[in-house]
Design a binder for these strands. Structure first.
Length: 357
DNA sequence: AAGCCGGGGGA
DNA sequence: TCCCCAGGCTT
């Protein structure tokens, strides 16, 4: 593989075929950083509206650092992987207070910030500062695995380091920003996971998998285990026209987000008494269960969830939370100001209808 | 080295 | 249904 030929063909294709994306209209390192964080494990089309809102609302690290984490999570609501928002918020505080609001252009310094790993560092510093650092993401691994018929499974633990070597050997030292984006753009538009458009690929003449008709065999991937299933009973507890909302701990799954209190169950629906007792342990409240409102299903990365939602009434007691971080008695209107995760959003329409609005 | 962490869209 | 997306952190 001659790197010069590879670069020339790839960059020539990118110059005429790249998409116009919001974060390609700026040279602001902070804005590019925000885009890269949002794009982790997230499709371009999904990230675009979040990116626009985020930059409008928090145009500089200082604006982000000054913001309440709850408002940041609210803006992130629905995007998932909420630790990204918490880390970005923390990192903005460090940039604002220790680096005079300037994104560090030194890889080691930048990568020391929370949420900044090898990919983010290489992406932001190459695109914003022209540093010659090769990115390795899912696209890059797929393109290189086909190009060079690399047998290493891309989803195995050490895959990043394995693919970093050839990527570093190929990156164009004169155009690192365009080069990195070009490999990823090629992976997104041409060298797709399924049905790659090899006929339109500028690298097809260099590609071993294309030559051997083995494109479908790459990238190699370790088999994934199928996700287990969990069942939850969720309580909408009404008291004087308001409902009890609780905030999850800042760490762990959906950290810092709000929800209606819930308890794990075995999947049986009949045991309202057991449900009320578990809710009493969870919230400190004695409740009466009126009826089941609806059932929702939601898929997380590592498990699937079925949730039965029950309309309940507060009977006695003051709120004493077992696992939650805090609580509020909310109306539907005030609930809308809190960051709520997707599984709860899935029954908002049914809840609004039941409450007569 | 392995496990954890969301949500969506295409096939 | 399954796949997989501009990954990083914790243990």
């Amino acid at each position: 593989m001659e790197p010069e030929i590879f670069r020339k063909r790839l960059l020539g294709w990118y110059a005429t075929h790249h998409r116009r994306l919001p974060w390609r209209e700026t040279s602001d390192p902070y804005a590019i950083w925000v885009s890269e964080v949002m794009l982790q494990q997230t499709r371009v089309a999904t990230a675009i509206p979040y990116y626009q809102r985020f930059i409008d609302r928090f145009p500089t690290p200082g604006h982000l650092a000054d913001a309440d984490i709850q408002s940041v999570l609210k803006l992130w609501e629905g995007l998932g992987y909420y630790a990204r928002a918490r880390n970005l918020h923390r990192a903005a505080g460090i940039v604002d207070s220790r680096f005079n609001g300037q994104v560090p252009d030194n890889p080691a310094v930048f990568q020391s910030l929370p949420g900044v790993g090898d990919y983010i560092a290489a992406a932001v510093l190459s695109i914003a500062f022209g540093r010659v650092l090769a990115v390795v993401d899912g696209n890059v691994k797929r393109v290189l695995s086909r190009l060079m018929e690399i047998d290493s499974p891309v989803n195995r633990n050490g895959a990043h380091k394995i693919f970093k070597a050839p990527a570093t050997g190929l990156i164009c030292p004169k155009h690192p920003a365009d080069f990195n984006q070009a490999v990823m753009e090629l992976g997104a538009l041409i060298c797709r996971p399924k049905k790659p458009a090899c006929g339109a690929c500028p690298l097809s003449v260099l590609c071993l998998a294309n030559r051997h008709h083995t494109t479908a065999d790459f990238p190699k991937r370790d088999a994934s285990r199928k996700a287990p299933h969990r069942h939850l009973s969720i309580g909408v507890i009404l008291k004087k026209g308001k409902m009890l909302a609780v905030q999850r701990p800042m760490e762990g799954l959906l950290g810092g987000l709000w929800e209606f209190p819930a308890v794990p169950t075995d999947g049986e629906q009949g045991d309202w008494k057991g449900f009320a007792e578990m809710m009493a342990t969870e919230t400190g409240l004695t409740i009466a269960v009126d009826r089941r409102l609806t059932r929702i299903r939601h898929a997380y990365t590592h498990f699937r969830l079925t949730g039965d939602v029950y309309l309940c009434r507060h009977v006695a007691g003051r709120v004493r939370l077992k696992s939650a971080k805090g609580h509020r008695w909310v109306t539907l209107r005030s609930l809308a100001h809190l960051p709520l995760h997707k599984a709860n959003h899935k029954f908002m329409d049914a809840l609004a209808a039941a409450l007569g609005r």
